[in-house]
Computed example of a mutant assay.
Amino acid sequence: MEQLHWLAVVRHGLSTGNVTAQDAETSGAELIDIPERDADVPLAPAGREQAEAVGRHLAGRRLDLAVVSPYRRTRQTAEIALAGSGVPVVVDERLRDRELGVLDLLTARGVRARLPDEARRRERLGKFYYRPPGGESWADVLLRLRAVLREIREDHPGGRVVLFAHEATVLMVRYLAEHLSEPELMELARGSTIANCSISSWRLTAGRLEPELFNAVDHLHRHDAPPTTQEDVNAEPV
């Protein structure tokens, strides 16, 4: 099957839910007090600024398609980053965040205190296979990611595509693109906090996608971020 020429994943900008969740974890609370359902959580003001920085970084690159999670924070990130670019945008529910089921709105402390049996089951099975009641395991998320990436490759061979999605999506796209094992993915997850509006990307080299950037945030700290190479601006797909 023909590959994409370039694939990138952008995690959404800082959301109001991210801020509330971090405050809850830091304070030792058991519950995260987010009034909206997960799909409706918006960007925080800082998240909108991060999305603008992504837009400056992508400006001038030739992009064939953006595929976006339907969640409000990811749609807002894509809308801000791609404003005026003319890049076609497709919203795909398969890029939604992992569904947590009974663990939703619980901090790590809250899970241990209120659902100790689930905490033990999660510890025994590991993140990859543990499925909370009413939710998804990482393996479940991978099933939908495999499907959407296969369709993108088939519909846009040799294309340059950017995904706007979530923290877990970044890790799992890397798992798929680089053919990682479960232990390799778990080690990566333990050592990496995927930053808001970070960019991870892969470029076609010798017939396969090779890693180019992972969890990169340099573009968030400067006012001008031109394309890395002239190829990004005007080259034809291979």
Results as ranks from 00 to 15, higher is better:
1 M>E: 14
145 L>T: 08
184 E>A: 14
81 A>P: 05
103 L>Q: 08
128 F>K: 06
218 D>N: 07
35 P>T: 15
75 R>C: 08
39 A>R: 13
59 A>Q: 09
170 V>T: 15
228 T>I: 06
94 R>K: 05
22 Q>V: 14
53 A>W: 00
182 E>H: 09
89 V>I: 15
89 V>F: 07
186 M>C: 02
112 R>E: 15
218 D>E: 14
15 S>P: 03
76 Q>N: 02
60 G>N: 05
125 L>E: 15
197 C>N: 05
208 R>K: 03
5 H>M: 09
69 S>H: 03
117 D>I: 05
146 R>N: 10
209 L>E: 04
11 R>G: 01
164 F>L: 10
4 L>P: 04
166 H>G: 09
113 A>Q: 12
103 L>I: 04
106 L>R: 09
125 L>G: 07
110 G>K: 06
212 E>T: 03
10 V>M: 12
231 E>K: 12
164 F>N: 11
50 Q>E: 15
203 R>N: 03
157 P>V: 12
44 A>M: 03
11 R>H: 05
17 G>E: 13
156 H>L: 14
103 L>D: 04
232 D>K: 03
19 V>G: 11
145 L>E: 09
15 S>K: 03
74 T>L: 05
221 H>C: 00
72 R>I: 11
194 I>P: 01
45 P>Y: 10
3 Q>G: 13
206 A>F: 04
139 A>N: 06
24 A>P: 06
82 L>F: 07
219 H>Y: 05
186 M>A: 10
71 Y>K: 06
111 V>G: 02
194 I>E: 00
225 A>P: 02
187 E>M: 13
160 R>L: 12
142 L>M: 13
197 C>P: 03
61 R>M: 10
54 V>G: 01
50 Q>V: 01
135 G>T: 08
1 M>A: 14
10 V>I: 15
70 P>K: 07
200 S>D: 02
14 L>P: 00
29 A>L: 11
101 G>F: 01
117 D>T: 13
44 A>Y: 05
171 L>D: 06
136 E>T: 07
67 V>Q: 01
92 D>Q: 13
165 A>F: 09
222 R>N: 00
189 A>F: 14
233 V>K: 09
204 L>K: 07
46 A>I: 09
173 V>T: 15
184 E>F: 04
200 S>Y: 04
62 R>Y: 02
200 S>F: 05
158 G>P: 02
